[in-house]
């Protein structure tokens, strides 16, 4: 399955970068979100995939029975998902205010801080 996910990750990176190269602010944020998915999935896949064996310790044991899914990438991704959401929320609101102030969502028309 890692082989399939490798292509999914590549597709997500490609789509995310493509969107970040658009001029519309909304598309840039969507690109940011896609990049976030891609990175999380990258960490997840590189930590190897395990089917149907969560990193949980059964009630009658002191350790999970091998093979179990690697808990470390999961912990990292959990943090990343939440942080990614914070970044997206902030960027969205920032772009919205920018739009309200300058009256355009075209990044190319807001290149300079001063009027030329």
């Amino acid at each position: 399955m890692e082989v399939v996910l490798a292509f999914v990750i590549g597709g997500l990176y490609a789509a995310g970068l493509f969107m970040m190269m658009r001029r519309s602010m909304v598309k840039v944020i969507m690109g940011l979100a896609l990049l976030g998915y891609a990175s999380n999935l990258l960490i997840f896949t590189v930590g190897r995939l395990t089917r149907g064996s969560s990193p949980l310790i059964p009630a009658d044991a002191a350790q999970p029975a091998a093979p179990f899914a690697d808990p470390l990438p999961q912990a990292l991704i959990l943090t990343a998902i939440v942080i990614g959401f914070g970044v997206q929320a902030f960027a969205l609101v920032l772009f919205k205010r920018t739009y309200q102030s300058v009256g355009t969502d075209d990044l190319d028309s807001i290149r300079a801080t001063e009027k030329s």
Binding site: E2, V3, A14, V46
Partner: peptide, 21 residues
């Protein structure tokens, strides 16, 4: 042009994941 650049990056990531895994 942007699509080509983005696909290049995607292909690189795919290759990396394949090699690492």
């Amino acid at each position: 042009r942007d699509a080509v650049v983005a696909l290049l990056a995607g292909a690189m990531m795919t290759t990396l994941v394949l090699i690492v895994t």
